[in-house]
């Protein structure tokens, strides 16, 4: 997949939809494209976060350690962004992410990510929207759990 195709893909992701193509191209050019084999991990719960990942192709599972062992809490696919929380608020990785099968990602370093946010307020808004949506989802889950 060439740079231009990556740019096309990035444009379809809500987070980046409003950024001009030349900036997306820079984002793609300066980000490493990484291929993982099934079973390899992008990162481990508890690690220090240094990058976020955009999934270009393949499926990954998000896993959290519990007392009863590790469980899968979500599945990610093409176009999903993962790992941005740890670099946004400097907390250790809250979950592990593992490639389910062959997985291709674009790795955006912390430095680049912050640069994008400071330059393009649209991205901040998108991230806020995404975080709010997640919070809402969590609240729903919490209510459901409590009402049970």
């Amino acid at each position: 997949m060439s740079l231009n195709e990556e740019v096309e893909l990035l444009r379809k992701i809500p987070l980046f939809a409003k950024i001009e193509p030349s900036k997306l191209k820079l984002l793609a050019f300066t980000s490493e494209r990484l291929t993982y084999q099934g079973g390899q991990r992008l990162f481990q719960q508890g690690d220090v976060g240094d990058a976020a990942y955009i999934i270009i192709d393949g499926v990954a599972s998000v896993r959290i350690r519990t007392d009863g062992g590790e469980i899968q809490v979500a599945e990610l696919g093409k176009g999903d962004v993962v790992g941005e929380i740890a670099i946004l608020c400097d907390v250790p990785r809250t979950a592990s992410v593992e490639a389910t099968s062959k997985l291709i990602t674009l790795r955006i370093t912390k430095e680049l990510f912050f640069r994008l946010i400071s330059e393009f307020p649209q991205i901040s808004i998108e991230i806020m929207r995404e975080l709010a949506a997640r919070l809402e989802r969590t609240n729903v889950q919490l209510r459901e759990a409590l009402s049970r």
């Binding site: 490493e32 494209r33 990484l34 291929t35 993982y36 084999q37 992008l42």
Partner: peptide, 11 residues
Amino acid sequence: LFGKIAYGQAD
């Protein structure tokens, strides 16, 4: 190696 380490392969 007699080759190049491939770019884009994790780790």
